[in-house]
Amino acid sequence: MSESESGLAWQGVSSDALCWLELGDEVLVYHSGSGDTHLLDTLSASVLRLVCDRPLTLARLTALLADRPGIPRDELDGSELAALMKRFRRLGLVDVVKPC
């Protein structure tokens, strides 16, 4: 993601469109819009839950995740997070919005 885009925020789909099931350290999420079921690790699941609550910029998202216990710092690489959001977008789980 380029610098000019970094001002944009990510917004997850409305939370009533998702069903969650935590099975140990794997999380399944069913999206009633697309009908797809996704397998997420706990970090990806946390990210998705956060952006479903409210739109967040990547910087804000990184800061929120850093405060969480149990998430290793080296996994919070900004470019990996951006790649994850792009995958979520391709799956129709998040969209890019202007931050309010």
Partner: peptide, 16 residues
């Protein structure tokens, strides 16, 4: 019911 749910979603995707 399921088909109608899919339609709502597809319409959103098309609009986007």
């Amino acid at each position: 019911e399921r088909q109608q749910r899919v339609i709502l979603w597809e319409v959103e995707q098309i609009a986007r």
